[in-house]
């Protein structure tokens, strides 16, 4: 009788550990799409920083576009300044359109795709 009780408890604990093992969730990968909400939230001429996507959404007369705020040099987050964007880590600068003004970066800011859904919501794609 004792043996049966001990084995039964062991079995339950074992099942518990197995369940814990199987339910392990690895750290999620960063998303590659961001739902930015209704397009009319972003008036013409607006420059909206999308912090979670490390990107900036631009609404120009040509429509919506976006630039990655990840510096093409080593990946620091670019900051907006009066002339465009600047890297707080190494000093690279970019104009308001993301074109390189000075290094150490040697590439312009990466353009991101902005999709407008049929119900007029904006989806930002950050995948490379």
């Amino acid at each position: 009788m004792t043996t049966k009780i001990l084995l039964a408890i062991s079995g339950l604990i074992g099942l518990g550990e197995l369940a814990r093992f199987l339910s392990f969730q690895p750290d999620p990968l960063p998303p590659e799409q961001y739902d930015l909400g209704a397009a009319d939230q972003y008036p013409p001429g607006s420059h909206s920083v999308i912090s979670e996507a490390r990107a900036i959404l631009l609404h120009s007369p040509d429509g919506f576009s976006a630039l990655s705020l990840v510096c093409p040099h080593l990946g620091c987050t670019l900051k907006q300044d009066q002339d465009g964007y600047a890297c707080p880590c190494h000093g690279s600068k970019f104009d308001a359109n993301g074109n390189l003004k000075n290094g150490p970066a040697n590439k312009p800011m990466r353009a991101l795709q902005v999709e407008t859904t049929p119900n007029n919501r904006l989806i930002l794609h950050t995948e490379t």
Binding site: T2, T3, L6, L7, I9, S10, I13, G14, G16, E17
Partner: peptide, 16 residues
Amino acid sequence: TVISSAVLLLALVASW
């Protein structure tokens, strides 16, 4: 058998 069962139980508890 009883001792083996007890050891198994203890090992599982310790592992937990």
